[in-house]
Amino acid sequence: MVPTMVLVADDSHDAQRTEGLRDLADAVARRDEVPVVPAFGPGPEVAATVDAVEGPLVVVPAFLAGGDLASAELFAGLDLDGRFDACATAPLGAVPSIVADLARRLAEAGWRQGDGVVLAADGTPAQDERRQVAAVARMLSRRVQSPVQVGYLSAWAPSVSDAVARLRRNGRPRVAVAAWQLVDGAERERLGDLGATAVTAPLGSASIVVDTLLAQHRAATARLAA
């Protein structure tokens, strides 16, 4: 029996996110590889949805490591300890193919060789997610051959605006913002207000994202069967 993929994210604080999350769930379901159950909302609703799914199941974060503080807190609060037929995957992080797609989006948004780049993440208290964001910045810097500063929207320092200002002080008048976001939301407007040269669109339901989520599901299925 193929385990159900339960996609988890918090969309309770941002109505704009709901459509993007639904599009992502639909894109995964259209591959027809696994049953897909979306679990989007505040913590109690998400927990109730997960509990209602008959096993086996794999709980998959519908957000990026360090890219969604509210969803990371919700995900950390899910309790699967009593279920032998369930496991969870880590949020998507420093995956080379995803970073390559982010670099492509920078070019499409108007970034040019020599421009500074800020990787705009949300931030979480989790040290592993912080390391993932730093790894993405290093990988992106190598791809675009330009300095990449990390800036945060909700947690940690520096802020995105501080990171943009630092690059400009260091001789980079043109600065592009790479949004480390899976789906659109209110933070998109905040990034647009920075006066950056370019701001990328969220990764959304791009094929590489769907491919990676399904690869995570296959790896988790193997763990459940072991």
Rank of each mutant, 00 (worst) to 15 (best):
A100V: 10
M5T: 02
G114L: 06
R190F: 04
A155I: 15
V60H: 11
L74N: 12
G43M: 08
T197W: 08
R169T: 03
V177Q: 02
P42V: 00
A126E: 15
L167W: 09
T200H: 06
A94D: 14
D193G: 08
F75A: 12
G110Y: 08
M1I: 10
A178G: 08
G66K: 15
A126F: 15
P42H: 03
S97H: 05
V144D: 04
V99P: 00
V148H: 04
A222R: 15
R112L: 10
T200G: 05
A186G: 04
A225N: 11
L24K: 13
D128L: 14
V133S: 10
H217A: 13
F75E: 14
G66M: 15
S146P: 00
D51R: 13
V118K: 03
Q113Y: 08
D211N: 14
P158S: 04
S12M: 01
Y152G: 03
A178F: 07
D10E: 13
L224I: 09
F40K: 03
S159M: 05
R168W: 04
E19W: 01
P3R: 08
A226I: 02
R104D: 08
Q216P: 09
Q145F: 04
R130D: 14
T197K: 11
A88N: 09
P42W: 02
A70F: 07
A15S: 10
V210W: 00
D11F: 06
S161T: 13
D122R: 14
L224T: 12
G151R: 05
A225F: 10
S205Y: 00
S205C: 03
A29N: 10
R104C: 01
P44S: 03
R169H: 02
D10S: 12
S159R: 12
V144W: 04
A52Y: 11
E187H: 10
S205F: 00
L74K: 12
L213W: 11
V59I: 13
G93Q: 15
E19S: 04
V60M: 14
E73P: 03
S71Y: 13
A226Q: 07
M5V: 12
Q149P: 00
S154K: 14
L102T: 15
L182C: 11
M139E: 13
V160P: 09
P44N: 04
V164S: 00
D11A: 14
A109H: 10
A88R: 15
I98F: 06
A121P: 11
D68C: 08
C87Q: 07
P3L: 07
Q127N: 10
A186E: 07
V148S: 05
A52T: 07
W111V: 05
R190I: 01
P158M: 07
Q127E: 14
T49Y: 01
D79V: 08
R83A: 05
R104N: 04
D26L: 13
L21N: 06
I208D: 04
P96D: 14
A120W: 11
R143K: 01
D193A: 14
D14T: 01
L167I: 07
L203W: 08
V117P: 10
